[in-house]
Amino acid sequence: MPTAKILVVDDEPAIRNLIHRFLLKQNYEMESAEDGKTALHTFDKFKPDLVILDVNLPDTTGYQLCQEMQKRTDVFVLMLTSRSGEDDKIRGFSLGADDYITKPFSLVELGARVGALLKRQRAVVPPEQPTITVGNLKIDPVRREAVLNQEEVSLTALEFDLLYFLANNPGRVWRRDELLHHVWNYDFVGDRRVVDVHIGVIRRKIEPDASHPSMIHTVRGVGYKFEPPENSETSD
């Protein structure tokens, strides 16, 4: 099996070098960058499987860099941040980040997150699955796009997989651990609230009123379910 390639982007030499040396000892192929310009140049040449990306960089933000990298490939992105606020997590996930880890962190935890991400497979939804139509929302697995009121909804790969999975199992209540297993497709070792953050992002994109969702419902103490509005038609 080929060795996974990892790019570390952080402007703090101590943190960047520490991560680089630690993962190199785990037999990963490593490259590092201290700013956005160098990171993109290295990214294009190195073609990493995963990028460990600091939010704060001298010439750009990790959010902008994440978005640019996601336009070029479907690389996995693990964000490093000193911020623990929900808004920062939502912003990162909405731009395609797969996971986040808050500074300070342990190298053991970082290694576990990296290993778990690299086990995950992209495009969890097989293209032969049927298109789902719920009222004015159409979810097409072949094109991997969602259309609401005849306008395409901008979804990351993970957001699409999560939305399709829920819509393809209407009425079924899913625990967070179950969603992590089926949609993330690996044994998640981070904060399970990552599910809540992604659900919140999707609601903002497809619900008329995200604070009073009509499609993706919270089942308190359990998890989430997709329940179409009573006056909508569902087809596949």
Rank of each mutant, 00 (worst) to 15 (best):
V134T: 14
P127E: 10
T38Y: 09
E31D: 10
R192A: 04
N27Q: 13
F93K: 02
G85Y: 10
Y100I: 02
G221C: 11
L158P: 00
V194P: 01
S84W: 03
D44C: 09
R193E: 05
V75K: 04
I199K: 13
M79H: 09
R72N: 03
H198P: 04
L163K: 05
P126N: 14
I90N: 06
S232T: 13
R91G: 00
L163T: 00
R172Y: 14
N149A: 03
R144I: 00
R91V: 04
P58K: 02
W174Q: 09
I90Q: 11
P141F: 02
P2V: 15
S214R: 15
E233G: 00
H217E: 15
D140W: 03
N185M: 05
V195T: 04
D187F: 01
A4N: 08
G221H: 11
D191P: 06
D209S: 13
R193H: 10
L65M: 10
N169S: 06
E233V: 01
L155E: 00
V125A: 06
L24T: 14
V55F: 05
E128W: 13
Y164Q: 06
H182P: 00
V8R: 12
T38D: 13
T73N: 00
L110G: 07
Q121W: 01
L107I: 10
A210G: 04
R193A: 03
L163V: 06
E128S: 13
L7V: 08
T42F: 07
L180D: 04
D191M: 07
E12Q: 12
S232Q: 12
I19P: 07
T81D: 02
H217W: 14
D187Q: 06
S235W: 10
Q150A: 10
E128D: 15
